[in-house]
Amino acid sequence: MKPMTRAALVITATAALGGTSYRVITRRRRSGAAPAAGRRHVITVNRPLDEIAEVLPEPLNAYHGTIEVQLRAAPADRGTEISARALDDKVSDGDIRRLLRESRSLLEVGDVLQPGGPTTEPTALNSALRGATRHGREGGLL
């Protein structure tokens, strides 16, 4: 996740859930349970391994040489586990999360859902939230 996005999310989460949740989130981060930078990110796609192994989806292909991708059949016929990690400092964890999420959507649905048209306006109060949603597929715990 890009630093700005991480900060925006933490601020948003803090505003959302008050002191209790803030403590939970920060404790988890300090204990090392939060994703570490440069780690391997994994997603399960509801498609069989042979189908995915044949042709990787375009978002992953586009990063050929800068990320390492591994495929593994998920247990209990749950599809395929796709894992990826950056080989290049220019590729962030946020980039990889987005690539994996977009790839899953392309493989399962054939399309990536686009956000609805904006009906809102920027204010001082919603700047953190707008920052977080601009990178909605890059953040999180994946």
Partner: peptide
């Protein structure tokens, strides 16, 4: 389209 927020929470 914004899984980051709820995934974090």
């Amino acid at each position: 389209t914004n899984p980051a927020i709820t995934e974090t929470l």
